[in-house]
């Protein structure tokens, strides 16, 4: 029983290690592409976020509740001071 559990754990670790070596960067790219689209979208509805709705984007009010969870991360990304070493983690790996 103990041996089976250990073997299963080892196999799981090996699978994750292989994923890190190979497929993880695809997931990272997908995450970044998604967030780039989200940022453009956020920009489109920034009027509503600031409490000054742009008349033509009244429909964005309906979307706001769905975006509420993404606001802290977006604000952090927007306000964070960036330099070249910021892009290193992604570009150089």
């Amino acid at each position: 029983m103990m041996v089976t559990v250990t073997a299963r754990r080892f196999l799981q670790s090996a699978r994750e290690f292989l994923y890190g070596l190979t497929g993880y960067e695809f997931a990272e790219t997908a995450r970044r592409r998604r967030v780039a689209c989200e940022q453009v979208f956020m920009l489109a509805i920034i009027g509503d976020l600031l409490g000054a709705p742009i008349p033509r984007s009244y429909y964005s009010l309906g979307l706001l509740p769905h975006l509420a969870a993404a606001i802290p991360g977006w604000r952090r990304r927007m306000l964070k001071e960036k330099d070249l070493t910021e892009v290193l983690g992604y570009e150089l790996s």
Partner: peptide, 11 residues
């Protein structure tokens, strides 16, 4: 997961 990161770091 630390195993995923281990592989990613080594790569």
């Amino acid at each position: 997961s630390k195993h995923v990161l281990f592989g990613y770091q080594f790569k």
